[in-house]
């Protein structure tokens, strides 16, 4: 870091005092909620919405919108960090933890060590199964006390706040547990296979 050449005349303004310990390297705080998606926002269709969990190619659980909302709901307030360098503190979400989903599917633990998350529009992202359990992740349907905006992934998105936010895949439809790690859409496009913001794992090889 200290090797970086000084940009003559650049002063910057982002030094953020006591919040600094909550902001990973290379990130800055924002108060709005920027949007990053590779394509158009899909239309919401709750009547045909389904969420499924697969063990490899075998379905182990699936829920309609009504069934999903009848599962135990959890509130989570967390900091989120996008690879495009914005961070947002104390965001509040409501949804169903992956633990609760596994339990509802009659499983005591993920059926495989790796997960591939599938979304409307064909997008995928990969997350190790251990990063999804023990309260670390949920399928979120509410943000800040309101129905989750389609722009931000509504009706439902994955929330894995301790990884860069592209892993918190929007318009989520299915979690497929696998025996080996399969890189998702963003990961195939040069983003890091794991994506820990505290180790600045933005791109492949970081």
């Amino acid at each position: 870091m200290s090797q970086s050449p000084i940009s003559r005349g650049f002063r910057g303004r982002g030094r953020s005092g006591d919040t600094v310990t909550r902001v990973p390297p290379g990130q800055r705080l924002v108060t709005d909620f920027p949007v990053l998606s590779a394509g158009p926002t899909p239309p919401v269709d709750l009547a045909n919405w389904r969420f499924a969990i697969d063990d490899g190619d075998s379905p182990v659980g699936d829920w309609t919108w009504g069934q999903f909302n009848a599962l135990p709901q959890t509130d989570l307030t967390v900091d989120i960090h996008c690879v495009t360098t914005w961070s947002k503190l104390d965001t509040s979400w409501r949804g169903v933890t992956i633990d609760a989903l596994l339990e509802a599917a009659g499983l005591s633990e993920p059926p495989g060590p790796f997960a591939l998350i599938h979304c409307d529009g064909g997008y995928t992202t990969n997350v190790p199964s251990e990063d999804l359990v023990d309260g670390k992740a949920m399928i979120a349907t509410q943000f800040d006390g309101e129905t989750l905006d389609p722009e931000h992934g509504g009706p439902a998105r994955l929330l894995v706040p301790h990884l860069y936010f592209w892993k918190s895949a929007k318009w989520v439809q299915r979690i497929q547990f696998l025996d080996s790690e399969v890189p998702g859409f963003w990961e195939e496009n040069g983003y890091h296979i794991y994506g820990d913001p505290w180790r600045e794992q933005r791109y492949d090889g970081d």
Binding site: M1, R11, G12
Partner: peptide, 12 residues
């Protein structure tokens, strides 16, 4: 990535 004299950095 820009770096100021006191080492502060900003990325876009």
């Amino acid at each position: 990535r820009l770096t100021s004299e006191d080492g502060y950095q900003a990325q876009r």
